[in-house]
Write a protein that binds this DNA or RNA. Sequence first.
DNA 1: ATAGGTAGTGAGTGGCCACTACCTTACGGT
DNA 2: ACCGTAAGGTAGTGGCCACTCACTACCTAT
Lengths: 222, 222
Amino acid sequence: MSAQQRRESVLAAAVEEFANGGLTGTSTEAIATRAGISQPYLFRLFPTKKALFIAVVESSFARTAALFEQVAGERTGKAALDAMKESYSGLLADRSYLLTQLHAYAGCYDPDVRVATRSGFRRLWETVERITGLPVDELRFFFAHGMLINVSVAMDLSAVDDRWAQIICSPTFLNPLLEPDGSTEPDGSTGPASSTGPASSTGPASSTGPTSTVDELPAVPR
Amino acid sequence: MSAQQRRESVLAAAVEEFANGGLTGTSTEAIATRAGISQPYLFRLFPTKKALFIAVVESSFARTAALFEQVAGERTGKAALDAMKESYSGLLADRSYLLTQLHAYAGCYDPDVRVATRSGFRRLWETVERITGLPVDELRFFFAHGMLINVSVAMDLSAVDDRWAQIICSPTFLNPLLEPDGSTEPDGSTGPASSTGPASSTGPASSTGPTSTVDELPAVPR
DNA sequence: ATAGGTAGTGAGTGGCCACTACCTTACGGT
DNA sequence: ACCGTAAGGTAGTGGCCACTCACTACCTAT
């Protein structure tokens, strides 16, 4: 196995391990074990643990940006944003991925992590801005709800047998912009509201085929 | 000094130290040193480091809830929510406080931290819901933007000599709900847009006097 | 066959850190 | 004087963990 391939498999293992524990709460041994290599060899592939963490953060942002570009296709404006929202909802299934985001933000006390997170976030914002061309208010709305999704997943709100699950999993949470006001669709928040699965993807997003699944994303460079 | 007083001063020190580093990245010695006591004595006041962290998280949520109750006064509905938004904007000045929030969410991989964070978040949500009586969409909007504020502070976006500072510090970021749609004020995103200071508190919030500052909050119980 | 480069490991090591055992001081009541 | 109790410190200790060093196996090209 080439070093480059090995590096990518280590990166994948690191995503899973860093998801629980973050930068400081994860041991390099756990990552190495999951990647199926010896722990010292990990330091041949990445100079330091922090560098590996930063690589994870960067790939995470890059992956999101690539996903957004992909699902937007040729669309612009609100149509493109709707496609992005739909795709981000699909990420609800990838818990490790969303937790990585949170650890990136929480790790910002470290200057190196901060610049990586900042530039990743900035590139993501500019990607969405460029594709949609929407005003800043709507971008902010989009990102704000993305953050709320992140923390909801972190707290595992949908696991509580509560109205939380209904609030979080309801389509209006996943796509609140679709009906900004009035005539809110009779969402099942009062009824039992199918609490199974993370809200089936009923929207459009049919431009590039069934791209709403996460696993078939383009591999992130580096 | 009584043990109870000592406990509270340790709690205050722990907020500052946990803000950088989170649960796993902070040493009890740093906390003890800041609190002015020996490190072993810390374990006489709190049984374990995680317990101290959870106490910090709980006090953080309780403090926010108390702040919201206070600034809302007798108001309800959007008026109350506006007061809360204004007060939360005031928290922009308290970096440690907002970072604590992020570390609470990121620390949710630990079951104990998760239940503490979940119940704190739940109580906060229900407090806002009870006081304002607003529908779930507006609550979600409020909390979503609060989260975005949190991560913006973590990334220290306002420190970048960029349009970020203008976006984040602009009044429309701090109070985006004030003009939910149409006739979006010609926001100064193109102009220089006074980038000094975190948006002076020009709103009302005159019910209980000048309570918009953070330092004079009611001490959190426990 | 030999020389060199690449993938990979076993065995440390130094340092940090959560947590413990035990001692000291101060004070209040009888 | 005497004792109990509560505040606080000193000196550890066991374990984890990031990172290093020395070494082996294999592969390819001359």
